[in-house]
């Protein structure tokens, strides 16, 4: 029994020291979206090297990946992220709206609406493109199986919805767009909750003729699996997906990591950071870098949320909020 009491005391001891593991100023927690794993694995190594050269300090960057709406929720409940790197403006905005963890003008703190790189929903088809999928039109044809995650839980899929909607609106007119989306949803055999799960459905389980996800993910899968298995198709039009980043002031201040966190995000805009992002098939604004990788990025007309949907507030009210258009169209599925 004595041994048992000692074990218990030791256990409680470990429990009590847990708060002491709190972060030192040389550690950052980057809370990110699901499919950015490989990108930040590379960014973190490069940044740590640069920071060491500049300041002589070693820095550790911890990563957490999941659906970005779920991540935002966790941060509101106390996951102490120093920085967030998300794929959806609304998921960052909620940190201000519901927790005041960041200032209202967070998007103005860094260039391009605090989005160091951008991407677009693109198509990944099986080798030889047997169903001849070239544009959004081809997705609603009978007998075509389309794979993308559930637009209610995945930011990634919400962009797919927006791209398809913008395409239909511009080609057939606003009154026909709803019908187009209904036909598109009808061609999806399974809605996974996140981007990676949808990828697994398409790649591992071999379901579907086309996977719609960010261009960065489609191209990485093709590289990983081989050009003899998949082809990337970038449609003539798509929607601009921003990847907003920000320092989470409340926690960075608490940890004393604000300077480091800011430097980390600025690194994403530096030529070295932009090079890594572009190498991972994310489009960047640095002209030299884009010229270097121009073969990776086919021409595409990108609709902006601001121009096509009147900004995020209007978009949320008309399309994405509970009971709005997406619910109506998705509910019929």
């Amino acid at each position: 029994m004595n041994r048992f009491i000692i074990a218990l005391a030791a256990g409680l001891g470990i429990l009590a020291t847990a708060p002491a593991q709190a972060q030192t100023p040389n550690t950052l927690l980057n809370v990110s979206y699901d499919i950015s794993r490989e990108l930040y694995a590379e960014i973190n190594v490069a940044f740590a090297k640069q920071w060491k050269a500049k300041t002589g300090q070693d820095v550790t960057i911890n990563q957490s990946h999941n659906g970005s709406s779920r991540q935002a929720r966790s941060i509101l409940e106390g996951l102490e992220a120093d920085v967030v790197t998300f794929n959806q403006v609304t998921d960052v905005q909620v940190l201000y709206d519901r927790g005041k963890l960041i200032p209202a003008d967070w998007a103005k703190r860094l260039p391009n609406n605090s989005s160091p790189y951008y991407s677009l929903p693109a198509f990944l088809v099986r080798a030889g493109n047997p169903k001849g999928i070239k544009d959004w039109d081809d997705l609603v044809k009978p007998g075509v199986q389309v794979i993308f995650p559930n637009p209610k839980t995945s930011g990634n899929a919400r962009y797919t919805y927006l791209a398809a909607y913008a395409f239909a609106k511009n080609k057939y007119g606003a009154d026909k767009a709803d019908d187009f989306i209904k036909k598109l949803f009808a061609n999806v055999p399974v809605f996974d909750t996140g981007g990676r799960a949808a990828t697994t459905t398409f790649v591992e389980r071999g379901t579907g003729d086309v996977l719609i996800t960010f261009e960065a993910e489609t191209s990485s899968i093709r590289d990983l699996a081989g050009k003899d298995k998949y082809e990337v198709v970038v449609p003539p039009t798509s929607v601009l997906a921003e990847f907003p980043v920000t320092v989470v002031d409340k926690y960075a201040d608490k940890h004393g990591t604000k300077a480091l966190a800011t430097a980390y995000l600025e690194f994403l805009y530096s030529p070295e950071g932009q090079d890594i992002e572009a190498k991972g098939y994310n489009r960047v604004t640095d002209k030299t870098v884009m010229a270097k990788y121009k073969d990776k990025f086919p021409e595409v007309k990108l609709y902006r949320v601001e121009d096509e949907f009147g900004g995020w507030d209007k978009l949320n009210a008309e399309h994405l909020n509970p009971g709005a258009k997406l619910d109506t169209l998705f509910g019929g599925k």
Binding site: P19, E77, G99
Partner: peptide, 27 residues
């Protein structure tokens, strides 16, 4: 547990004020 110990939960603010980290950690 999130509703009880999370930052916006029942005891979350109190626990945070005491400087103890419960959620998203070993405890």
């Amino acid at each position: 547990y999130i509703f009880v110990y999370g930052s916006q939960g029942l005891f979350g603010p109190l626990i945070e004020a005491m400087g103890i980290k419960v959620m998203f950690a070993l405890p």
